[in-house]
Design a protein around this nucleic acid. Structure first.
Lengths: 242, 242
DNA sequence: GCGAAAATTATGTGATCACAAAAAATGTTA
DNA sequence: TAACATTTTTTGTGATCACATAATTTTCGC
């Protein structure tokens, strides 16, 4: 058994547009790859290694990594090594609780600001989720699902909680992605219709319940995946590739 | 009326210990000064300006500022200018709601892990708050009060929400500090006793209520301060020093 | 062969420079 | 005097280098 190196990983690439600063490009690229589970927990990330892999200078990587550390997406150890954190049962439960807490609040406070345009946009996003489910494209299921939630909460122009929620997603993401990838297509249920219906009826309470149900449903799906306990920290023997 | 510059401000200094990295020292220093309201909202912060003021190279300031931006303590404008954000009524209300939401949850989940040692420590911290109130030391009232809450929540070894809560504090801090400084000593009530009693009785529900009451009380005090509406964005005419 | 010590390499942090873009200051004209 | 154009200064970003420390490899003694 050999320890995996950064070079062994095939990163999902993003095209770098002109106006985008290099550090932001690196940040988004790493962020997306972490959320997709492309970079597995425990893997040490080095500034120079990433800089070489992405063909940029170390400086923008340095800033991107610091930001990710600040958001809890990566963990800085005492020996200043940066790794993708392992998931534990307790952490998972706490992160799920925080998702429900923050997101049902965000949905509730966004509700009064929802316009017809918002609903149309959310329906369009939801259609794209269905497509991703149909194609069993687990990476896009996650990414577009987040887009749905973010769009909903951001309808509130005074929204503060989105960055906090995104931090929770980032900590939950790499792990849940592994689970989603293992889910059968038929087990993924689209609960967003209920949320959209609540929005149409301008029923704040129903919206809150729909979002809560959506999150709980996703968590239950993850928990139902065969062999998921093996992915928690300390159960390395059941992890694949070990 | 002349726009204030960074050089006009007298920063609260922290001694730099040997093991502390420069960037962390700068970070903590800026963080403390922001929380104390030493740096007033709207003031543009520049890397070189701060580096000169603190007699360090621009690099550690750069990292510290980026981290503060990531935590919402400072705001990066479109023209990449970094300023201390202005407070608005809506933001204030939302931040207060998030405090209650997150902190009552954090208190509840920490409750089962509380030991006698924790209680003793919290009582010791609370005594220091009373001293700060007695001395009308508004900066220390804030800082030690935060220490109390952080200590309580951190009793849970699997606590995830503390960084999120600290982010809310940072966004609320500069503003509420202005209010606390204006409060008469007699109007500051120490509600922590109720929390400590709840802990002694191992009554999770009472603890939750005590923390909620403590936060609501603080907010009410801030709202009660004469002339506070003038500090919200858009009411510059009533702000002092203008 | 094997463990400890020493040398070597890798890595994060901080400093300095170059550059493009944004702000501010200055000059110009009506 | 006010409004616009031009120049100058300021500022953030990225690149490169130096340095201390942590990790790794090699060497040496038994």
């Amino acid at each position: 058994m050999k320890a995996k190196k950064l070079a062994d990983f095939e990163l999902l690439m993003l095209e770098k547009s002109e106006s985008l600063k290099t550090n932001q490009w690196v940040y988004r690229l790493l962020r997306t790859n972490l959320l997709c589970g492309k970079i597995e927990p425990g893997l040490p990330l080095t500034i120079r290694g990433l800089a070489e892999a992405l063909d940029v200078s170390p400086m923008p990587v340095r800033e991107a990594l610091h930001r990710l550390a600040c958001e809890g997406a990566v963990e800085v150890k005492n020996n200043r090594r940066v790794i993708v954190p392992q998931m534990t049962v307790e952490k998972f439960n706490e992160l799920c609780a925080l998702r429900i807490l923050l997101e049902s609040h965000a949905a509730e406070t966004a509700s009064p600001y929802i316009t017809e345009q918002h609903i149309t946009k959310l329906q369009e996003i939801d259609a794209r989720i269905d497509l991703a489910i149909e194609q069993e494209d687990s990476v896009n299921i996650s990414l577009i699902n987040q887009e749905f939630h973010r769009s909903l909460y951001s309808a509130n122009p005074f929204q503060i909680s989105v960055p906090l929620i995104e931090s929770v997603w980032l900590q939950l993401g790499p792990f849940s992605q592994i689970a989603i990838a293992k889910l059968e297509k038929t087990y993924i249920v689209d609960r967003h219709i209920e949320a959209i219906n609540a929005l149409k009826q301008r029923n704040t309470f129903a919206l809150r319940r729909a979002i809560e149900a959506d999150i709980r449903d996703g968590i239950a799906s993850i928990r139902s995946v065969e062999g998921i306990p093996g992915y928690f920290e300390g159960n390395t023997q059941t992890q694949p590739g070990g």
